[in-house]
Simulated scan of single mutants.
Amino acid sequence: MGPQAVRFGILGCSSVARRRSIPALLAQPGAALAAVASRDPEKAKAIAAELGCAATGYDELLTRDDVDAVYLPLPTALHVPWGLKVLAAGKHLLLEKPSATSADGARQLVRAAADRGLVLRENFTFPHHAQHATVARLLAEGRLGQLRSFSGAFCFPPLPATDIRYDAALGGGSLLDAGVYPIRAAQLLLGDDLTVAGSSLRVDGRTGVDVAGHALLVSAAGVLADVKFGFEHTYGASYTLWGSTARLTVDRAFTPPATWQPVLRIEEQDHTEEHVLPAGDQWSAAIASFTTAVAAGHHAGHPAEAAGLRSMVRTMELVEDVMRAATRVAA
């Protein structure tokens, strides 16, 4: 822990926090873990003892003087109410994705962060992996010729019946949980100026949540984008960019292990090549980027932060458009 380390409180001891975010945070020289909060006091005490920090309740966490920033991995439907409380308490906020269940909720968070002069980040970690910057560079250099289409997918097998992603009241459903990944990848590579041309959702009659879906989008430059998502499939996380002279595919695009060496496959009419890239820990990179912004005195109105927040809000606008346009079929 360095002298200027950002002191974190964890609001909600979720699986993703325990498996991914907390280890990444503990490994960061620019970060320190001050306290963890859980609805279950005994759970908080056990985790705090394991991690060497304080155990608190949700509200108490927000009053602690030794907490500069809060990481919030609660269910999606709780992001806005608790996120607004975090920001009102004067704490920087690293919010697990997606930011909200609606575009209006995302806008509320942005306004609150801007009013208080705080850093607000949505914890999409995959854009922090260097493989996507390499893809963007190849696109800009014209390696694929004129880009014609983007196709992205994030799917995985069914979850336990008790999983919160089957609970509509908590913001469940595959669009909010998985579909936001290829949508955000399309934004990253094609720009935020996307429109939804059509969509379909498979809806579970028992839970009322979508368990799979497919959407067609179009960029301002006329590039066609299709995204697929769901949790009733074998695992897959990839995207393909198809240009006038070549096609590029990225596998393990969204959740590569820290030891994974990405392979970019480029196919032409009579030639195929593979670029093996260095491994990268996107979780660690995301935490490092957030702590660097806080330490530098950034806030929601800073140009770099504002651009990210515009994309965050735009993601939720596109999610709402997918929902409105959807033809729904029974799962």
Rank of each mutant, 00 (worst) to 15 (best):
G179L: 07
D192W: 13
L159S: 00
G171Y: 07
R148M: 09
D193M: 09
Y166G: 00
V203D: 00
S200P: 09
A186D: 06
G171N: 04
F154T: 00
P160R: 05
G152D: 10
P157M: 14
G173W: 12
Q146E: 15
A169W: 07
G191M: 09
I164Y: 14
Y181Q: 13
S199G: 11
F156Q: 10
D163S: 10
A168L: 15
G191V: 10
A185R: 10
L170R: 07
A169K: 03
A186C: 05
V196G: 03
L144G: 04
D167Q: 11
P158H: 13
T195K: 15
F156T: 05
P160H: 09
A197N: 12
A197P: 06
L194V: 05
L194F: 12
R148A: 08
Q187A: 09
L159E: 08
T162C: 08
I183P: 00
G172H: 04
G205I: 02
G191Q: 09
F156S: 04
Y181H: 15
L194M: 11
G145K: 03
V180P: 02
P157Q: 10
G205A: 05
A161L: 05
R165I: 06
L201R: 07
I183G: 02
D192H: 13
Q146S: 14
G205L: 04
D193H: 13
L194R: 05
F154W: 08
V203Y: 09
G172V: 03
P157N: 10
G171M: 09
G152P: 08
G191A: 06
P157I: 13
P160L: 08
C155A: 14
Y166I: 01
G171R: 02
L147H: 02
L170P: 00
G145N: 04
S174Y: 03
P182L: 11
F150V: 04
